[in-house]
Design a protein around this nucleic acid. Structure first.
Lengths: 131, 131
DNA sequence: CCTTGACCTTCCAGTTGCTGGAAGCCCCAT
DNA sequence: ATGGGGCTTCCAGCAACTGGAAGGTCAAGG
């Protein structure tokens, strides 16, 4: 199948699929006309990568997960370890964002937000105590 | 003062300060030797930008905040609106991450993580119902 | 047979926000 | 004058695509 169908089947833009080929995530065959030719297993891989990406794994992690997936004898412990690491990253990110949210939220609350020029947000950014 | 001192005073790497000059966030003067010459107000701006960035504003937003800050007659409503928008973005991001966390956390829980090859995480990535 | 339009190809550039490194001045102390 | 820092510029690269230009291919309609 052509890249357009592969795109429809996987939900990934054609551009992205070409990019994934560039970096060696998929290796579709080629027809006589030079068009890429995707078989079922290629599409399967694309879906796998799309799902992994949507869970926030980096492309390199996807590559790794893919290789684990294709290694029929691999241990699930490897996968679990990666997933756990990723989970920890997510938790850190959430914590960071919640800190931000608290700080910024407090500033927004204190800003009266009318047409007067004094503004606690700018004051804090400019010179107030950090954090 | 030289870029090194400005860096120490603002907490930003010299490289970053040069970059900020490149994109027009600061415009330090120059000495006869070609060295950048930062005055107090330049450092002040750098600190302002550093704080805004650390609150997660994009560089373009920092530029905007800076111009609002320098406009003595601006309305605090403008600032508040930007901050609120940013707050909404943060909230969306947190929600996304929490969704991820839930999905991935559930998968990790269900993965026994030993040396057997079957793994619910890979199964989900490969073909299970999409989140 | 020719044209039209959709689809495919490659390659180059741009995005965001820096960061690293190379090559080459400059300044100060010994 | 020599050494070691600090300063300058410019070029490249990170992630993960995305947009666009220039051109080849294919199927349908007239």
């Amino acid at each position: 199948m052509n890249i357009g169908e592969a795109s429809a089947a996987s939900g990934l833009p054609a551009k992205t699929i070409r990019y994934y080929e560039d970096i060696g995530l998929v290796r579709p065959g080629r027809g006589d006309n030079g068009y890429r030719d995707f078989v079922e297993s290629d599409v399967h891989k694309l879906v796998f990568v799309a799902r992994s990406r949507s869970l926030g794994f980096t492309v390199e992690e996807c590559r790794h997960l893919l290789s684990l997936y294709e290694d029929r004898g691999r241990a699930s412990a490897d996968v679990k370890a990666m997933a756990r690491e990723h989970l920890a990253r997510i938790d850190r990110k959430i914590a960071d964002l919640e800190g931000l949210r608290a700080t910024l939220g407090a500033l927004v609350e204190r800003c009266h937000g009318d047409d007067r020029p004094d503004c606690p947000i700018l004051e804090r950014l400019s010179g107030g105590p950090a954090a």
